[in-house]
Every structure is written in structure tokens, then in C-alpha cells.
């Protein structure tokens, strides 16, 4: 019995040592499976729907990415946060990114986010007050219009619309009115037309169908099938974290593919409502949805840059093809 006990004891000790050995080795094994933390700036609007889908469906987790989502208005603060490595990856409109690259910031677009189709599937539009008499850009001369931001894609496209429909955008006053206030400003007679988009467009049309009307599509109409927003990272971060960026793009892409195929799907509406705080009924009654894209077409980026230059936002056009990182090409 004593012998057996000794054997048992020896076995137990050996087992314990082996287990301890394995235990000591464990951190290395765990290290391989440790989640990589990424802080991502996201503009919490409809355009970011595919990102929220990818997050909710666990695509980032499957790629061993732990995403810390930080809502951001996009634009300057997003780029500043990327440069200072507060964000590793951030969403913004592509016009902001083109401006940043033109200013010497080494940004790369790692995946597309949203795009716009031509009217009537455009999720952005020129909305007018019916009694304004505006049907084309020619009618806008001497009138006041509004865009959400100045020197951004809707602003450039509004000027394109005016100039391509008989008007002269240099003779039209375009002021900045944020999306949520545009309907009030239109109905109150403070502006005559507005560059709106979803979900504000459908909400306004439902609230005042007898006073407001859509006379043209905007972003996807003036620059057909244009990209609107993208995720970007600095070249420095990409160089040091190539596999992380690839994993992010793969995970996002799966969300984008699903979202593109499932617009109006109750699961999608529920998820987007949760992240954007939009009432689900508002999402169910959208006139049009953004396209959820992963690939960025160089020609689309180039057209936007040319438009920016035309309206004085760029002195020289940066090499837009070089802005697109390999993960955003397919």
C-alpha cells in the first residue's frame, strides 16, 4: 500500500509539476489568443449601420478584436484623434480625409463605409419649401440654402446641382444649418432649400408633405454611386499593425455585406435603432438607405477630389489612388 501510495504520490507530483509547467507556459498560449484592443471613432448615424451590425454579430470578436466604440462627429476632431493615436481607426466623410491628405497627413482608407445611389434611391436630396418656387438650380439665384456643414460632400454636391441645372452657385447664399434643424428652418421661411439626408429627409416629408418637396437627389445623383464615408488609419499605424487592420477590414466587410442585403430587416432595424437611438418606426419608413460598402473605387474618390478643387477646397489634388489601402480595394 505504501508502494502504491508512493507511486500515486509520485504520479500526482509529476502531474502537478507538468500541470504547473503547462501553467507557466499558459500565458504564452493565452497571449496568442488575447484580444487586440482597438479604439474606433464612429459617427453614430445611419451610414455607420454596417459597423454596428458587424459589432453586434460578433465579427470583430471572431477576429480577436475588442472594439471600444467612441462616438465622434467626424471631421477635424476625428482626424486629430487619429494623428494623436487616440483612435486607431476612425470613420469620417471622405472629403475630410482628402483634405487631411492634401494637408500632408498620411492617412489611408482601410475600408469603405457608405455610398449613395442616384435618385430615386439616393438617401440624400435637395428639399425645398413648395412655395419657394425652386425646381432647379436656376431658381436658386438670390435664394438662401443650407447644408449640414460647409465644405463637405453635401455642400459640394449642392453647388454641383445648382451649377448643373442652370444656376450659378457663386450667386447663391448657402449657410450652415445642422440636419435636425433644417426642417424647422425650411418651414419657418429662414431658408428656401436644404441639402438633407436620411433619416431627416423621410421624417420631414412625413411631417409636412403639403409644404415640402424633394426636387433632386444629391450626393449619389450628382456624383453617381459615390462613396460618402470611410474608415481610415494613419500609415504609421498600418505599418506597425498590418494584421490588425486586415482583421478589422475583414470583420467590417462581413457586416457590410450582411447590411447591404438586409435593409429593412427587423434585426437590422433593431440594431441600428439601438446604436443610433433612432425610433425603429423612423427607420422602417425611410425613403432610401445608404449603400453599405467595403470596397472603394479610385474613380469615385478622384471625382470627389476634382469637385473639391473646382469649388476651391483643394489647391492641388492629392494622389487619391494612393489613399486607398489594399484592404479597401476588394
Amino acid at each position: 500500500m505504501t508502494k502504491i501510495s508512493r507511486r500515486k504520490a509520485t504520479t500526482l507530483v509529476a502531474g502537478a509539476i507538468t500541470a504547473l509547467g503547462c501553467g507557466l507556459k499558459a500565458p504564452a498560449v493565452w497571449g496568442q489568443s488575447t484580444m487586440t484592443k482597438l479604439r474606433v471613432g464612429v459617427v453614430p448615424v445611419l451610414d455607420a449601420g454596417a459597423f454596428f451590425i458587424a459589432e453586434a454579430q460578433g465579427h470583430f470578436a471572431k477576429e480577436r478584436l475588442e472594439i471600444e466604440v467612441t462616438p465622434t462627429p467626424g471631421g477635424g476632431p476625428s482626424i486629430a484623434a487619429l494623428v494623436s493615436n487616440q483612435f486607431q481607426i476612425s470613420m469620417s466623410t471622405v472629403t475630410t480625409m482628402i483634405s487631411g491628405v492634401a494637408e500632408g497627413i498620411d492617412l489611408k482608407l482601410v475600408t469603405g463605409v457608405s455610398g449613395a445611389k442616384p435618385y430615386p434611391n439616393d438617401y440624400s436630396a435637395i428639399m425645398v419649401r413648395k412655395d419657394s418656387g425652386i425646381k432647379t438650380g436656376k431658381d436658386c439665384i438670390g435664394k438662401t440654402g443650407a447644408t449640414h456643414l460647409l465644405q463637405n460632400l453635401p455642400w459640394f454636391c449642392t453647388r454641383l446641382w445648382i451649377d448643373s441645372t442652370g444656376g450659378d452657385s457663386s450667386k447663391v447664399s448657402i449657410i450652415e444649418v445642422q440636419f435636425p434643424q433644417q426642417q424647422d428652418a425650411l418651414l419657418g421661411g429662414r431658408i428656401d432649400f436644404a441639402a438633407t439626408n436620411e433619416p431627416f429627409m423621410s421624417a420631414a416629408m412625413q411631417a409636412a408633405p403639403d409644404k415640402l418637396e424633394i426636387v433632386s437627389g444629391l450626393m449619389g445623383t450628382m456624383i453617381p454611386n459615390t462613396i460618402v464615408a470611410a474608415f481610415a488609419a494613419t500609415q504609421d499605424y498600418i505599418t506597425k499593425n498590418k494584421s490588425v487592420v486586415e482583421a478589422f477590414a475583414r470583420a467590417y466587410g462581413q457586416g457590410a455585406d450582411w447590411a447591404q442585403q438586409n435593409k429593412n430587416n427587423p434585426e437590422m432595424i433593431e440594431l441600428i435603432a439601438k446604436f443610433t437611438k433612432l425610433p425603429p418606426e423612423r427607420l422602417r419608413s425611410l425613403i432610401a438607405w445608404p449603400d453599405y460598402i467595403r470596397a472603394i473605387q479610385p474613380a469615385s474618390l478622384e471625382r470627389i477630389a476634382q469637385t473639391m478643387q473646382r469649388y476651391g477646397a483643394l489647391k492641388t489634388i492629392p494622389d487619391t489612388a494612393k489613399m486607398i489601402y489594399e484592404t479597401a480595394r476588394t
Binding site: 462616438p71 462627429p73 484623434a81 433619416p199 437611438k277 423612423r282
Partner: peptide, 21 residues
Amino acid sequence: EMVAGASGVGYYITSMQYAGR
């Protein structure tokens, strides 16, 4: 808070405004 971040009354006001609430 309205410019950046995901907390605070500033962020709450902005997100509710954009949600039409």
C-alpha cells in the same frame, strides 16, 4: 461633450437631437 466622447449631457443632447427625440 458634444464634440467627442460617449458620455455626459452634451453627448446625450446631441444623440437625442439627431434621433429626433
